[in-house]
Design a binder for these strands. Structure first.
Lengths: 184, 184
DNA sequence: GAAAACATGTAAAGGGTTACATGATTCC
DNA sequence: GGAATCATGTAACCCTTTACATGTTTTC
């Protein structure tokens, strides 16, 4: 079976929900998988075309009064096969996140104490904001849980986000303690 | 001041250590910042050229008996300026890691229970391996600490890696508990 | 004698973001 | 009247990986 990139699988997965147009896919991503998967329009539209060209989905243009035309995509059985067989395969490797804060701190001896503290403090704040975002999304999912089979899985990915973010916040706290105490 | 990409700053930073050639830079990265920053030769050599072209470093070819010629790079004062002023700037945003396991779990309802458990179990094992790698690197740094001013910073980035990895392992355990119990 | 380590590089392809281009409708 | 939302798309550019190309020396 032909291999596709992860972006293609992500879009195939989203096409199993009620989000069937490029615009709707983008919205869905921004609201629910944004914390571990981002996609831009520059990827979505060309990928949708390729998906259709490969027979993984079909398009129908729907006209709604007072709304722009919509290209609605629906998975073919081949598309579902490609998605499910990808889902069954184990993950090859744990991702390496490129982290600018760590890169800067790695070269911390060329940085002033004030700068290190400022950067870490700033980063910690951003992490705290992110944590709050996760909590909000979680509450939104819990509120609409009743009519959604997928809720348990969505909550599980959010739980990951929360745990990782908390661990990162704790690290910031420890690093700030360490580097604020040091003499200049 | 002209902006460079993160890879360039990473290489400028490494050029402050005793690693002065493309080959040595690659080794250094693989041994110490591999957990938050990877670079391939395909980036290193062209970037070194660009760094020299912009006057951030100088090259000298050194010949050692019984060894291939080495291109040794040393930072100019301009290079040091570019590096230090980048270090002082705050980080714009927290990175979004693309995580294949989360992507697969997000669409967990199209996956068999056995497959989910296998994938999570496998992932947890890979995380445990990674944790051990961090512990080994940590011990190596501690053993040579005496002659290295940068050790505290290196250990701090490793601490981040350990904390995040542990949090991810805990999440795997919780997710496995949740999804093993469920009825098929 | 073969494999691993030392050493430098390029080219093609893949993946992704950003900016641009267009245009309707709805809300303030 | 202007901003935001709805809606689709392309082109240029940037970044990164992978595969290729080359050749020596050391270790097993």
């Amino acid at each position: 079976m032909k291999k596709y990139n992860h972006t293609t699988y992500a879009i195939l997965g989203i096409l199993t929900t009620e989000c069937t147009s490029g615009y709707a896919i983008k919205q869905f991503i921004d609201q629910s998988l944004n914390h571990f998967w981002k996609i831009s329009y520059g990827q979505i539209y060309p990928t949708l075309k390729a998906i259709v060209a490969d027979g993984l989905a079909e398009v129908h243009t729907s006209s709604h009064e007072g709304r722009p035309d919509r290209h609605e995509y629906s998975l073919t059985s081949k598309g579902i096969d490609v998605l499910t067989s990808w889902l069954e395969q184990p993950v090859e490797q744990v991702p390496v996140e490129r982290n600018e804060v760590l890169l800067k701190l790695f070269f911390g001896r060329y940085q002033s104490k004030a700068s290190k503290v400022r950067i870490l403090h700033d980063y910690k704040q951003k992490l705290a904001d992110r944590y709050q975002t996760y909590v909000s999304i979680e509450q939104a999912i819990l509120a609409h849980k009743n009519n959604n089979e997928a809720a348990a899985y969505w909550l599980c990915t959010l739980d990951y986000g929360k745990r990782i973010t908390l661990a990162a916040i704790d690290w910031c706290t420890a690093a700030l303690d360490q580097f604020s105490v040091e003499e200049e």
